[in-house]
Design a protein around this nucleic acid. Structure first.
Lengths: 221, 221
DNA sequence: TCTCGCTATTGACATGACGTCAATAGACAC
DNA sequence: GTGTCTATTGACGTCATGTCAATAGCGAGA
C-alpha cells in the first residue's frame, strides 16, 4: 500500500500556465471526480486542487469557496431535472392518461439520479453547510419542481383525473421531497452502487406511490 | 442594537464548580437552546458554552465534540418516535382498520416533529457532517422505523388489506423518508414556525399519501 | 472551623483548513 | 530578443478545534 492511492500520480512538474476557462473547467472536473469517491464532508480545497496540478491558492482565483463549486456543479444538472418535469407539466394536454407521462418523467428523473447520484448527494449535503447552497438547491431547484408538479396536480384535479381532496401545493412538496430523499438514499452513496435489480425496485416503488396518490390504484380496487 | 442580543446576560462571575452530571445537563440544555435559534452549521463549541457560564475547554470534559452532543439530544427524542411506530406495528391485530392506527401514529409522530423540529433538523444536518451521527440517525433511527413499517406492510398485504404488488421494504423506506423530509421542511426551521392552518394541511397531506398508498383511496374510486 | 485532597475548570498551546496578497514567472505580442 | 500581462504561488493572519498541565473550588475529615 505504498503511495496512498488517492494522490495524483507523479510530482507536480514545472509550473504550467493555462487559459482561465481551462483551469476553471479542470477544477470543476476535479471536484466532480473527488465527489465520486468521497462524501462532501471530506472535500477540502487542497484535496480538489491536488487533482488539477495547481496550488491551493489558485482555487481562489476562480471560485469563492467550495460551496460555489458545488453550486456550479448543480447548475449543470439542475437543468436536466427541470427539463423532464417540464415534459410532464406541459404534456398530456388532450389524453386521459397523465399517468403515462408521469411515469415517463419519473423514469427520466431517476436516471439522472443514477448518473449524477454522488454529486447530487454532495449538493444536498452542502445545503446543510452553507446558506447560499441551500438557497440555490432548495429554493432554486426543489421549489421550482414543487411548483411545476403542483400546477399539474391542479390541472388534473380540475379535469377530474385526480381526487379533489388533495392540496396541490402540499402534495407536490411531499412527493418531490420523497423522491429526492429516496433517490439520494438509493443512488447517492459514493461507495455502494445498487444492483440493477435493486434499482428496478426503487423505480417501481416511486411510481407506485406517485400513481396511487394522484390517480388512484391502477389495477384492483 | 447595542449588545448583540445573543450573548448571555452579565459577566461570567466568579468560577463556580458543579457536579459533573449537572454540568452535562447544562451543556445539553444550552445546545438545545442554541439550536432553537440557529441552524446547526452555526453551532460552535464556544457558542454553546457561553450559555453555560463555563469555558470552552470544559466542554471536552463531558463530550468528545459537538456531534456527540447532537447524538445525545437525538437519544432523548428517538425513543418517542419509535414508540409510536411500535403502536402501529403491534396494533390493529384483529380489526380490519390498520388505517385508523396508521393515522393515529402519523399524528403522534408529527406532533413530535412540531415540538422538537429545530433539534431534529439539526440532527439531520449533522448527519451530513459526521459519519458517527449519520450512523446513529440513519441506521439507528430511520432504518428501525423502516423495518417496523415494512413488517406492518407485509402483514397487511398478507391479510389482504394492502395491495399485493408493493415491495414492503422499499415502500416503507420511501414513505418514512418522505415523512422525515417533509416534516423537517415544515417544522425544522428555527426562524419560521408554520401557522395552525398550515400545519393541518401538512398532517392531512401526509395521511393522504400514506393511506392512498397502503390502503387505497378512502372515498371515491 | 480549619485543613487537605480530589477533581472540575481553565489558560495556553498545537493543529488544520481557510481566504488574502504581494511577489513571481509563464506565454504571447511586437 | 524583449517587455507586458496575468496566471500562479509562497507566506501570512484568522478561526475553530482538541489537548494538557496548572489552578482553584468544594466536600470530607479532624
Amino acid at each position: 500500500m505504498l503511495g496512498s492511492g488517492d494522490e495524483v500520480s507523479g510530482d507536480r512538474g514545472p509550473r504550467r500556465r493555462r487559459r482561465p476557462e481551462e483551469a476553471e473547467r479542470a477544477i470543476l472536473a476535479a471536484a466532480r471526480a473527488f465527489l465520486e469517491e468521497h462524501p462532501f464532508r471530506e472535500m477540502t480545497v487542497e484535496g480538489v486542487m491536488v487533482r488539477t496540478g495547481l496550488s491551493r491558492p489558485a482555487f481562489y482565483a476562480y471560485f469563492r469557496d467550495r460551496y460555489e463549486v458545488v453550486t456550479r456543479l448543480l447548475e449543470g444538472i439542475g437543468g436536466l431535472l427541470f427539463a423532464l418535469d417540464w415534459r410532464w407539466l406541459s404534456g398530456g394536454e388532450g389524453g386521459d392518461e397523465g399517468r403515462e407521462v408521469l411515469v415517463d418523467a419519473l423514469r427520466a428523473g431517476s436516471r439522472t439520479f443514477v448518473e449524477y447520484g454522488p454529486v447530487l448527494r454532495a449538493i444536498a449535503d452542502a445545503a446543510g453547510y452553507d446558506a447560499r447552497v441551500e438557497q440555490v438547491y432548495r429554493h432554486g431547484l426543489i421549489e421550482r419542481l414543487v411548483g411545476a408538479v403542483a400546477s399539474r396536480i391542479s390541472r388534473d384535479m380540475e379535469a377530474g383525473l385526480s381526487p379533489s381532496d388533495l392540496d396541490p401545493q402540499e402534495t407536490a412538496r411531499a412527493l418531490v421531497l420523497m423522491t429526492e430523499r429516496y433517490l439520494l438514499d438509493a443512488f447517492g452513496r459514493p461507495e455502494r452502487q445498487p444492483s440493477r435489480r435493486e434499482s428496478a425496485a426503487v423505480f417501481a416503488t416511486l411510481e407506485e406511490i406517485w400513481v396511487r396518490t394522484l390517480y388512484g390504484p391502477g389495477g384492483s380496487c
